[in-house]
Design a protein around this nucleic acid. Structure first.
Lengths: 135, 135
DNA sequence: TTATTTACCTATTGACATAGTAGGCAAATG
DNA sequence: CATTTGCCTACTATGTCAATAGGTAAATAA
Protein backbone atom coordinates (compact mmCIF):
# COMPACT_ATOMS: atom_id res chain seq x y z
CA UNK A 1 0.00 0.00 0.00
CA UNK A 2 1.14 3.48 -0.81
CA UNK A 3 1.38 5.46 2.41
CA UNK A 4 0.57 9.08 3.14
CA UNK A 5 4.19 9.98 2.54
CA UNK A 6 4.09 9.08 -1.13
CA UNK A 7 0.60 10.40 -1.63
CA UNK A 8 1.29 13.70 0.08
CA UNK A 9 4.53 14.04 -1.86
CA UNK A 10 2.61 13.74 -5.09
CA UNK A 11 0.16 16.42 -3.95
CA UNK A 12 3.02 18.72 -3.01
CA UNK A 13 4.58 18.25 -6.43
CA UNK A 14 1.26 18.98 -8.10
CA UNK A 15 0.78 22.07 -5.97
CA UNK A 16 4.23 23.30 -6.92
CA UNK A 17 3.51 22.62 -10.59
CA UNK A 18 0.30 24.63 -10.42
CA UNK A 19 2.00 27.57 -8.73
CA UNK A 20 5.23 27.37 -10.66
CA UNK A 21 4.67 30.85 -12.08
CA UNK A 22 4.99 32.40 -8.62
CA UNK A 23 8.59 31.29 -8.22
CA UNK A 24 9.28 29.93 -4.76
CA UNK A 25 6.18 28.65 -2.99
CA UNK A 26 6.22 28.72 0.85
CA UNK A 27 5.43 25.42 2.54
CA UNK A 28 2.91 27.21 4.69
CA UNK A 29 0.78 27.95 1.62
CA UNK A 30 0.99 24.37 0.39
CA UNK A 31 0.03 23.06 3.81
CA UNK A 32 -3.02 25.31 3.90
CA UNK A 33 -4.17 24.51 0.39
CA UNK A 34 -3.61 20.78 0.80
CA UNK A 35 -4.90 20.71 4.37
CA UNK A 36 -1.87 18.79 5.58
CA UNK A 37 0.12 19.62 8.71
CA UNK A 38 3.07 21.81 7.77
CA UNK A 39 5.26 19.98 10.26
CA UNK A 40 4.62 16.67 8.58
CA UNK A 41 5.15 18.16 5.15
CA UNK A 42 8.59 19.30 6.24
CA UNK A 43 9.65 15.67 6.45
CA UNK A 44 8.28 14.95 3.01
CA UNK A 45 9.78 17.96 1.22
CA UNK A 46 13.07 17.12 2.86
CA UNK A 47 12.98 13.80 1.02
CA UNK A 48 12.05 15.55 -2.20
CA UNK A 49 14.91 18.01 -1.84
CA UNK A 50 17.29 15.19 -0.97
CA UNK A 51 16.23 13.33 -4.08
CA UNK A 52 16.91 16.39 -6.18
CA UNK A 53 13.31 16.73 -7.29
CA UNK A 54 12.71 20.18 -5.83
CA UNK A 55 14.83 22.86 -4.25
CA UNK A 56 14.24 25.20 -1.35
CA UNK A 57 15.22 28.76 -0.58
CA UNK A 58 15.25 30.22 2.91
CA UNK A 59 14.18 33.63 4.08
CA UNK A 60 11.45 36.01 3.10
CA UNK A 61 10.24 35.34 -0.41
CA UNK A 62 11.60 31.83 -0.12
CA UNK A 63 9.89 28.47 -0.37
CA UNK A 64 10.15 25.52 -2.70
CA UNK A 65 10.17 25.17 -6.44
CA UNK A 66 10.47 22.41 -9.02
CA UNK A 67 13.87 21.71 -10.55
CA UNK A 68 12.46 20.74 -13.95
CA UNK A 69 9.37 21.27 -16.00
CA UNK A 70 6.28 19.46 -14.69
CA UNK A 71 6.09 17.28 -17.79
CA UNK A 72 9.54 15.90 -17.02
CA UNK A 73 8.53 14.30 -13.73
CA UNK A 74 7.06 10.83 -13.64
CA UNK A 75 4.73 9.87 -10.84
CA UNK A 76 6.87 6.77 -10.39
CA UNK A 77 10.03 8.56 -9.42
CA UNK A 78 8.17 10.77 -6.95
CA UNK A 79 6.61 7.79 -5.20
CA UNK A 80 9.76 5.71 -5.36
CA UNK A 81 11.93 8.44 -3.87
CA UNK A 82 9.58 9.22 -0.98
CA UNK A 83 8.23 5.76 -0.36
CA UNK A 84 11.67 4.14 -0.60
CA UNK A 85 10.60 1.55 -3.12
CA UNK A 86 7.90 0.76 -5.61
CA UNK A 87 8.38 -2.98 -5.22
CA UNK A 88 5.21 -4.90 -4.45
CA UNK A 89 6.83 -7.78 -2.61
CA UNK A 90 9.84 -7.89 -0.32
CA UNK A 91 11.71 -10.38 -2.53
CA UNK A 92 11.81 -7.81 -5.34
CA UNK A 93 12.88 -4.84 -3.25
CA UNK A 94 16.24 -3.38 -4.23
CA UNK A 95 17.95 -4.21 -0.94
CA UNK A 96 16.45 -7.69 -0.61
CA UNK A 97 18.77 -10.52 0.23
CA UNK A 98 18.83 -13.33 -2.27
CA UNK A 99 16.06 -15.83 -1.59
CA UNK A 100 17.35 -19.43 -1.58
CA UNK A 101 14.00 -20.67 -2.87
CA UNK A 102 13.96 -18.31 -5.86
CA UNK A 103 14.82 -21.09 -8.28
CA UNK A 104 11.91 -23.29 -7.29
CA UNK A 105 9.43 -20.57 -6.28
CA UNK A 106 6.25 -20.92 -8.29
CA UNK A 107 4.99 -17.50 -7.34
CA UNK A 108 8.07 -15.46 -8.21
CA UNK A 109 7.23 -15.08 -11.92
CA UNK A 110 3.84 -13.68 -10.91
CA UNK A 111 5.43 -11.07 -8.66
CA UNK A 112 7.90 -10.13 -11.35
CA UNK A 113 5.14 -9.65 -13.87
CA UNK A 114 3.16 -7.60 -11.38
CA UNK A 115 6.16 -5.52 -10.46
CA UNK A 116 6.86 -4.72 -14.08
CA UNK A 117 3.27 -3.69 -14.68
CA UNK A 118 3.24 -1.37 -11.68
CA UNK A 119 6.57 0.13 -12.65
CA UNK A 120 5.41 0.80 -16.18
CA UNK A 121 2.18 2.32 -14.97
CA UNK A 122 3.73 4.84 -12.62
CA UNK A 123 6.72 5.71 -14.75
CA UNK A 124 4.62 6.42 -17.80
CA UNK A 125 2.39 8.80 -15.85
CA UNK A 126 3.74 12.33 -15.84
CA UNK A 127 2.96 15.08 -13.37
CA UNK A 128 1.21 17.02 -16.13
CA UNK A 129 -1.17 14.11 -16.67
CA UNK A 130 -2.73 14.90 -13.31
CA UNK A 131 -3.04 18.61 -13.92
CA UNK A 132 -6.28 20.11 -15.26
CA UNK A 133 -5.83 20.89 -18.92
CA UNK A 134 -6.33 24.61 -19.45
CA UNK A 135 -7.88 25.37 -22.80
CA UNK B 1 3.24 -4.17 -0.42
CA UNK B 2 1.96 -7.69 -0.32
CA UNK B 3 3.02 -9.23 2.99
CA UNK B 4 4.12 -12.75 3.79
CA UNK B 5 0.59 -13.61 4.75
CA UNK B 6 -0.77 -13.20 1.25
CA UNK B 7 2.30 -14.68 -0.36
CA UNK B 8 2.39 -17.71 1.89
CA UNK B 9 -1.35 -18.20 1.40
CA UNK B 10 -0.81 -18.38 -2.32
CA UNK B 11 1.93 -20.95 -1.87
CA UNK B 12 -0.31 -23.02 0.39
CA UNK B 13 -3.06 -22.96 -2.21
CA UNK B 14 -0.63 -24.00 -4.91
CA UNK B 15 0.70 -26.80 -2.75
CA UNK B 16 -2.83 -28.03 -2.14
CA UNK B 17 -3.58 -27.85 -5.84
CA UNK B 18 -0.51 -29.92 -6.66
CA UNK B 19 -1.37 -32.54 -4.07
CA UNK B 20 -5.11 -32.51 -4.62
CA UNK B 21 -5.05 -36.17 -5.70
CA UNK B 22 -3.99 -37.23 -2.19
CA UNK B 23 -7.20 -35.96 -0.59
CA UNK B 24 -6.54 -34.13 2.66
CA UNK B 25 -3.03 -32.76 2.93
CA UNK B 26 -1.59 -32.32 6.45
CA UNK B 27 -0.28 -28.87 7.27
CA UNK B 28 2.93 -30.45 8.50
CA UNK B 29 3.71 -31.64 4.98
CA UNK B 30 2.98 -28.26 3.47
CA UNK B 31 5.16 -26.54 6.06
CA UNK B 32 8.06 -28.86 5.26
CA UNK B 33 7.75 -28.56 1.51
CA UNK B 34 7.33 -24.80 1.59
CA UNK B 35 9.88 -24.29 4.34
CA UNK B 36 7.52 -22.15 6.37
CA UNK B 37 6.90 -22.51 10.10
CA UNK B 38 3.85 -24.70 10.67
CA UNK B 39 2.74 -22.49 13.53
CA UNK B 40 2.63 -19.45 11.32
CA UNK B 41 0.87 -21.34 8.58
CA UNK B 42 -1.88 -22.21 11.05
CA UNK B 43 -2.87 -18.56 11.16
CA UNK B 44 -2.93 -18.36 7.40
CA UNK B 45 -4.93 -21.51 6.74
CA UNK B 46 -7.38 -20.36 9.39
CA UNK B 47 -8.06 -17.32 7.24
CA UNK B 48 -8.40 -19.49 4.16
CA UNK B 49 -10.85 -21.80 5.92
CA UNK B 50 -12.78 -18.82 7.26
CA UNK B 51 -13.03 -17.39 3.77
CA UNK B 52 -14.41 -20.68 2.48
CA UNK B 53 -11.49 -21.27 0.14
CA UNK B 54 -10.31 -24.50 1.72
CA UNK B 55 -11.62 -26.91 4.33
CA UNK B 56 -9.91 -28.86 7.08
CA UNK B 57 -10.45 -32.25 8.62
CA UNK B 58 -9.12 -33.26 12.03
CA UNK B 59 -7.61 -36.52 13.12
CA UNK B 60 -5.42 -39.09 11.48
CA UNK B 61 -5.69 -38.92 7.71
CA UNK B 62 -6.87 -35.35 8.05
CA UNK B 63 -5.44 -32.10 6.73
CA UNK B 64 -6.64 -29.49 4.31
CA UNK B 65 -8.08 -29.62 0.84
CA UNK B 66 -9.41 -27.22 -1.78
CA UNK B 67 -13.15 -26.61 -1.98
CA UNK B 68 -13.18 -26.12 -5.74
CA UNK B 69 -11.06 -27.02 -8.73
CA UNK B 70 -7.77 -25.15 -8.95
CA UNK B 71 -8.82 -23.40 -12.15
CA UNK B 72 -11.74 -21.81 -10.32
CA UNK B 73 -9.58 -19.84 -7.89
CA UNK B 74 -8.26 -16.44 -8.83
CA UNK B 75 -5.06 -15.19 -7.26
CA UNK B 76 -6.95 -12.01 -6.45
CA UNK B 77 -9.43 -13.57 -4.10
CA UNK B 78 -6.71 -15.49 -2.29
CA UNK B 79 -4.68 -12.36 -1.66
CA UNK B 80 -7.68 -10.23 -0.86
CA UNK B 81 -9.06 -12.68 1.68
CA UNK B 82 -5.78 -13.16 3.52
CA UNK B 83 -4.37 -9.70 3.13
CA UNK B 84 -7.65 -8.02 4.04
CA UNK B 85 -7.70 -5.80 1.00
CA UNK B 86 -6.15 -5.41 -2.40
CA UNK B 87 -6.52 -1.63 -2.32
CA UNK B 88 -3.35 0.28 -3.03
CA UNK B 89 -4.23 3.40 -1.07
CA UNK B 90 -6.16 3.86 2.17
CA UNK B 91 -8.80 6.08 0.53
CA UNK B 92 -9.88 3.18 -1.69
CA UNK B 93 -9.98 0.54 1.00
CA UNK B 94 -13.43 -0.96 1.55
CA UNK B 95 -13.80 0.31 5.11
CA UNK B 96 -12.37 3.77 4.42
CA UNK B 97 -14.29 6.73 5.71
CA UNK B 98 -15.36 9.18 3.08
CA UNK B 99 -12.63 11.69 2.36
CA UNK B 100 -13.92 15.28 2.41
CA UNK B 101 -11.36 16.26 -0.21
CA UNK B 102 -12.39 13.55 -2.65
CA UNK B 103 -14.20 16.02 -4.89
CA UNK B 104 -11.19 18.25 -5.38
CA UNK B 105 -8.44 15.65 -5.05
CA UNK B 106 -6.28 15.65 -8.16
CA UNK B 107 -4.63 12.38 -7.33
CA UNK B 108 -7.75 10.30 -6.70
CA UNK B 109 -8.37 9.45 -10.38
CA UNK B 110 -4.83 8.10 -10.57
CA UNK B 111 -5.36 5.84 -7.57
CA UNK B 112 -8.64 4.64 -8.99
CA UNK B 113 -7.04 3.78 -12.29
CA UNK B 114 -4.20 2.01 -10.53
CA UNK B 115 -6.58 0.14 -8.29
CA UNK B 116 -8.59 -1.09 -11.24
CA UNK B 117 -5.49 -2.26 -13.04
CA UNK B 118 -4.24 -4.20 -10.02
CA UNK B 119 -7.66 -5.72 -9.45
CA UNK B 120 -7.92 -6.86 -13.05
CA UNK B 121 -4.44 -8.29 -12.99
CA UNK B 122 -4.92 -10.46 -9.94
CA UNK B 123 -8.48 -11.52 -10.62
CA UNK B 124 -7.68 -12.66 -14.14
CA UNK B 125 -4.83 -14.84 -12.89
CA UNK B 126 -6.00 -18.30 -11.91
CA UNK B 127 -4.27 -20.73 -9.60
CA UNK B 128 -3.67 -23.06 -12.55
CA UNK B 129 -1.76 -20.31 -14.33
CA UNK B 130 1.00 -20.72 -11.75
CA UNK B 131 1.15 -24.49 -11.96
CA UNK B 132 3.65 -26.24 -14.21
CA UNK B 133 1.85 -27.49 -17.30
CA UNK B 134 2.18 -31.25 -17.53
CA UNK B 135 2.36 -32.50 -21.07
C1' DT C 1 -10.31 -47.93 24.86
C1' DT C 2 -6.27 -45.66 24.33
C1' DA C 3 -2.49 -43.66 21.83
C1' DT C 4 -1.61 -40.97 17.92
C1' DT C 5 -2.39 -37.72 14.62
C1' DT C 6 -4.32 -34.01 13.05
C1' DA C 7 -6.95 -29.46 13.19
C1' DC C 8 -8.18 -25.53 15.82
C1' DC C 9 -8.05 -21.88 19.60
C1' DT C 10 -6.28 -17.84 22.57
C1' DA C 11 -2.67 -15.21 24.01
C1' DT C 12 1.85 -13.02 23.77
C1' DT C 13 6.05 -11.02 21.83
C1' DG C 14 9.85 -8.23 19.62
C1' DA C 15 10.82 -5.48 15.97
C1' DC C 16 9.67 -2.12 12.95
C1' DA C 17 6.89 1.31 10.31
C1' DT C 18 3.52 4.91 10.20
C1' DA C 19 2.02 9.36 11.00
C1' DG C 20 2.80 12.53 13.07
C1' DT C 21 4.50 16.54 17.06
C1' DA C 22 7.92 19.67 19.48
C1' DG C 23 11.29 22.90 19.71
C1' DG C 24 14.77 24.81 18.08
C1' DC C 25 18.79 26.90 14.64
C1' DA C 26 20.22 28.95 10.07
C1' DA C 27 19.61 31.80 6.20
C1' DA C 28 17.70 35.37 3.50
C1' DT C 29 15.16 39.54 2.80
C1' DG C 30 12.87 44.34 3.74
C1' DC D 1 17.47 43.82 13.08
C1' DA D 2 12.97 41.82 12.98
C1' DT D 3 10.47 38.76 10.24
C1' DT D 4 9.90 35.11 7.31
C1' DT D 5 11.17 31.19 5.62
C1' DG D 6 13.75 26.62 5.29
C1' DC D 7 16.17 23.10 7.80
C1' DC D 8 17.58 20.00 11.69
C1' DT D 9 17.29 16.59 15.63
C1' DA D 10 14.67 14.37 18.60
C1' DC D 11 10.56 12.23 20.45
C1' DT D 12 6.08 9.50 20.67
C1' DA D 13 1.80 7.00 20.28
C1' DT D 14 -0.30 3.61 17.71
C1' DG D 15 -0.48 -0.12 14.87
C1' DT D 16 1.09 -3.96 11.92
C1' DC D 17 4.09 -7.77 10.85
C1' DA D 18 5.83 -12.12 11.58
C1' DA D 19 5.99 -15.03 14.30
C1' DT D 20 6.03 -18.24 18.87
C1' DA D 21 3.87 -20.69 22.89
C1' DG D 22 0.90 -23.70 24.88
C1' DG D 23 -2.89 -25.58 24.92
C1' DT D 24 -7.99 -28.17 23.55
C1' DA D 25 -10.98 -30.84 20.36
C1' DA D 26 -11.78 -34.20 16.90
C1' DA D 27 -10.93 -38.24 14.22
C1' DT D 28 -8.69 -42.52 13.32
C1' DA D 29 -5.94 -46.88 14.00
C1' DA D 30 -4.10 -50.25 17.09
Amino acid sequence: MISTKGRYALRVMLDLAEHAANGFVPLKDIAERQEISKKYLEIIVKDLVGAGLIKGSSGKGGGYTLCRKAAEYSVGEIIEKTEGTLAAVACLSANAEKCPRAGQCKTLPLWREYDEMVHNFFYSKKLTDLLPSRK
